[in-house]
Design a binder for these strands. Structure first.
Lengths: 254, 254
DNA sequence: CGGCCCATTGAGCCTCCTCAAGCTTAGTGG
DNA sequence: CCACTAAGCTTGAGGAGGCTCAATGGGCCG
């Protein structure tokens, strides 16, 4: 079952039981992928759409000098490249951060949805537009904030996105990222990420134990980095009434 | 006539005469917009798609502290927000850099294309995916390169994109940007942009006179910043055989 | 001619980087 | 159960790239 996707789409559109079944039918091909494994590489022809059912993944590019730039994080319920099969070759790679359950969705399954389920299609569109908005916000983050606020902003975003799919509770969520992962996405060195995290801890804004990140006062953290969630375009913030979330048992190693 | 759009789409798909007419019919509402004017602002409901027929525009956001972050530049032939009308409110603003000719396209005109012209629809998709790829590359630029290579990369990208729509010739193109525009998009201060441009000039890589930018040796500049155009996904690089381009007469002031 | 906007240059400082070492944790094999 | 290893986290020291503040210069327009 791909609960996270349904949850995410339902924060945009109300779905019927029939539509939920159509979404289930989308993912017969599910596989377990180890941590630190590529799903698709730069230069490959895009053939399948990847849907993250569980775990964390990222979109990245390796520069000629060997430097890695991470351009997006994927959490449960995220499509990696919903519409990319129009292009001839990937211009970036996608790889797992933690161990993941991934659904491989063939192009014609997406086409089938597009032709028969306008409301799901609309919700897919929404996903694409939100992915773009997140990317833009990352650019703002890199261009306009310095290290401490930058990392705080990433944490606020992850909290909000994970709450929307039921993978955060009590301001805590699984955090399988290595410091160098954060460095490679925030345009910082790993050493500086380390010091910045230490400062955020000392200020009492976050705690990080056994790969579980806890935000002590999310209002204060959000204010600290001027986080406003408007760019995530969540219509129905309905997951505030969730019960204990399933993530605690699933903090897969990195 | 919206020559630039047709040129751009034809670098992705071959279009019939009928399809070109359909594209012309898309833009009955054309207006002249002065430089430094907003087309749409953050918070506004998106109603119209804006197509830049001539001039330069940008996508930007103002942070709470007053800082502006530019997230994209638009050149002739670019749609500002092809599919954004699904969302309720803009999460960023769009404004002109130079004076522009802009076409306002109502949503139903786009829908009409989608329903009747699959090849144009596909080319529109392509545009959207390329816009995203450009955004990703900007993130790479901010995260992974320092000031000189960063600005050089922007210049290489603009050259390539403008060549594709016939607005560059002999490695020269109109450059109406103020230094603070470059600063606000590259995450640098205006002072440092100034020094960096000076260095690029001193190295003989570029020249900048009367708002016309000339690249002396584009191969050397591209190598200097590791520019590879793959992310622009230009299939048919057909504009190498163009004649003198129309931009020289049109270097509108900023 | 004066005023404004933008480009340019200098000086001092701060954020963040690099290099390098020590430490912690988890995994492996005897 | 412990020795050993490897990966990742932590901390220090010194340096470089880029920022801020401030003053000057140049071009355009009223």
């Amino acid at each position: 079952m791909q609960d996270a996707l349904v949850r995410k789409l339902e924060s945009y559109e109300v779905l019927s039981e029939q539509e939920r079944r159509a979404l289930s039918a989308l993912t017969p091909h599910v596989r377990q992928v180890p941590a630190r494994t590529d799903l698709i590489r730069e230069g490959d022809p895009p053939e399948l759409v990847h849907l993250i059912l569980e775990g964390f993944a990222c979109r990245y590019k390796i520069l000629p000098d060997g430097q890695r730039q991470i351009m997006a994080f994927f959490v449960p319920g995220d499509f990696c490249d919903l519409n990319v099969f129009i292009l001839d070759a990937m211009d970036h790679s996608i790889g797992t951060i933690s161990a993941c359950r991934v659904a491989d969705i063939p192009r014609n399954a997406i086409d089938h949805i597009t032709e028969n389920h306008p409301r799901i299609t609309r919700a897919f569109w929404w996903c694409t537009l939100v992915d773009e908005a997140v990317l833009r916000e990352w650019l703002v983050n890199l261009g306009g904030r310095q290290a401490d606020q930058r990392i705080a902003h990433l944490i606020c975003e992850l909290l909000t996105r994970l709450e929307a799919v039921g993978y955060a509770s009590d301001n805590s969520f699984a955090f399988p990222f290595k410091q160098i992962d954060l460095a490679d996405c925030m345009g910082l060195s790993d050493v500086h990420v380390n010091r910045t995290l230490r400062d955020l801890r000392k200020r009492g804004l976050i705690a990080l134990k056994q790969r579980i990140l806890t935000i002590h006062d999310s209002a204060r953290l959000k204010e600290y980095c001027n986080f406003t969630p408007n760019y995530l375009h969540l219509k129905n913030a309905r997951w505030s009434d969730r019960r204990t979330s399933p993530w605690l048992a699933r903090s897969q190693g990195g």
